[in-house]
Amino acid sequence: MSETMTGTDRRSFLKTGAIAAAPLAALAPVAALADDGSKARLARIEDERAIEALERELLRRLNAPDTGRCAEMFACGKAPDLGAVSIRADLARAESEIAFADDAKSATLRRTVSAEREIHFTGNTTVEQMVRLQGHGSHRHVEDRTLVARLSKNKDGWRFETVELA
């Protein structure tokens, strides 16, 4: 992604509370609004809300017993293996940061998440062998990580290009 990313002060938008959560398809057509700057602002809000909704849905699907439905959210049709058993985000308390490219056709989302990882001690080191003997062949722990999602927008809306845990 070569475009310059510009950060959005989402809090300033959210403080207005004017835009209620709604399906992307139900949002008012941007073209119908007067072009006094509010058109672009509303477009940005629409994009933010769409990305937020996608993020929530991705987290829901990532943590579902069957993660197979994640794939359809990605432009490439394939979901990445994030190496985590579960990924939790406190959506109510912490906000994601969304940076848009100048053309508003791509964006990067960052959110602090708690990633639960499971490590299987399958190696041949002596410590791993002894840990397995003790009946503890794997270990789960939670790490604070940053979910970094790169998205693109086409005529059907936003899709994930890549998602990774940084």
Partner: peptide, 8 residues
């Protein structure tokens, strides 16, 4: 503490 879960 070598890595998570792997200690001696």
């Amino acid at each position: 503490e070598y890595s998570p879960g792997l200690n001696s």
